[in-house]
Design a protein around this nucleic acid. Sequence first.
DNA 1: ATGAAAGCGCTAACAC
DNA 2: GTGTTAGCGCTTTCAT
Lengths: 339, 339
Amino acid sequence: MANDENRSLTLRDVSEASGVSEMTVSRVLRNRGDVSAATRERVLKAAKELGYVPNKIAGALASQRVNLVAVIIPSLSNMVFPEVLGGISEVLETTDLQPVVGVTDYLPEKEEKVLYEMLSWRPSGVIIAGLEHTDAAKAMLRNAGIPVVEIMDVDGKPVDAMVGISHRRAGREMAKAILKAGYTNIGFLGTKMPLDHRARKRFEGFTEALAKSGVEIMDQEFYSGGSALLKGREMTQAMLERTPELDFLYFSNDMIGAGGMLYLLEQGIDIPGQIGLAGFNGVELLQGLPRKLASMDACRRESGRHAAQIIAARVAGEDIESVVELTPKIAFGDTLKRR
Amino acid sequence: MANDENRSLTLRDVSEASGVSEMTVSRVLRNRGDVSAATRERVLKAAKELGYVPNKIAGALASQRVNLVAVIIPSLSNMVFPEVLGGISEVLETTDLQPVVGVTDYLPEKEEKVLYEMLSWRPSGVIIAGLEHTDAAKAMLRNAGIPVVEIMDVDGKPVDAMVGISHRRAGREMAKAILKAGYTNIGFLGTKMPLDHRARKRFEGFTEALAKSGVEIMDQEFYSGGSALLKGREMTQAMLERTPELDFLYFSNDMIGAGGMLYLLEQGIDIPGQIGLAGFNGVELLQGLPRKLASMDACRRESGRHAAQIIAARVAGEDIESVVELTPKIAFGDTLKRR
DNA sequence: ATGAAAGCGCTAACAC
DNA sequence: GTGTTAGCGCTTTCAT
């Protein structure tokens, strides 16, 4: 193990140590072209002894190829996104592509910046959450000359490919199921995130479908920050004190829904008889709660897988469907009457 | 907006479009050296109109500088790691360094591979979870010639710098608090992860401290996979049926602890009178549960921040303390008698 | 099966 | 303040 100077080892070092030309060393290290077993051994041995780590920067510049896929998501703490990432990794691991994650915190300008930074490394593809981006970001995506998959939403026009569910439709379906179950005094509890377009679209779809049946949301409340479970609990209490006639609560995510459920159970309220509940996402995490919250899977892992497949196929020059709408089904659980 | 060919724009394109030399364009784009306001404008205008995105690959090769920090963690779904990442980002955002995340799934060979891949991009520093790595990985870290911070554990010898808590000590402290509260029939419920060295060390510290007082764990059980909340519930039930005389359950993480707590509450068991409970991590998520679970903060965000500070300082050529032990305090919550 | 030369797109270092 | 030159460490291409 060498490298005592503060300089990285180069192909040349391996070349000298093994007495083989740089070019052949390069071939061995990349498994390309024919190299005799003998020289191959010598090279490998030298590389290992020296502790040589190839310089991908130089390699990428010379070959004009980078096996990186930029994955741009709003947040890591949301639980939803690590699952998407899981799906992406699962597929990319079968190729020589690697995901690189960038986080935007739901801020359009930060998204633009992160995208710019990532594109400056010339990745082979981009997977980005959502269909809403700044004009500059859209322009960059269009001009990058690489496959781009927008995920987790299909209510809009993609720059290139898109994979996900329709949140408008998800909202509508849930509204229909709630009405069908006979609830009419409906409250909505959500996050105060004007920039979470998917939550917004769900809300719009929800109210729209209610309106079609002549029903209006009776009360609503939005929170930001803090523990979602706790917030759900607090908001539920506040809302029911304010509007006791409510018979259904639709939560914009499962976590606050779970908080609401725990509160109601403590109050001895009959779920789903007296009050029904539903959340969104189908997070596995919450199995193990006293009741199973009605919810709707956002097809997170699946979206990730599809997106990665599209990138992989395109990079390989294959043709592949570029618009994929996934259709989640309602999980009624124990908190929404089934009709 | 140009770039219709399938070739990325280069500095040369901007140079030609603006009538300024490549070198000066480069200076403008990097804000380096003196450039007259006039030419600066012209360059910026041309770059923007063309939609030029610099090629960091070429830039990095030429300048021998890469503003990336490799962050290598076992998992993203564990909730713990996104928080560490948050701390890292928080600090790096004040510098021009950027974190790049690699995930190992708790597999040493995968860690080795991820590390190799990341080092081949010649990052400015490495932040890596844990002190246990393959010999090859340790050699790579040592030879990389860049600052390396091992985080989330200080029970061992670091390659370079380390930041985190002592899990052995955490286990010991919890054992002492439990004994002091008067519990003696203690059960342990954990994850079946031989490769999670931190959990292992906590367990060792725990049993060691008990042993010092002549106490032995009365029952133990380990799980793998599935929803932690649900597993906690199931394991708790199973263990109490098997060993009804238990008066305390120590869970290796808060999530299964919460599951256990929910089960016990449903059974109408008095917590912490009849049975006491404690978990580990202090996850904010769980606020909002009926009782606050006793736990111990792992100083996740703090660890991330410190680690990033060490990297940033070292990259800037500054001197900085390279071993930082954070000392978590026990949060007694509502499930561990305070004495 | 192996090697030599050219160059990827940028920046450091040095002119002017 | 601006331009010129010479690489950075690889891979491509072509020769042998």
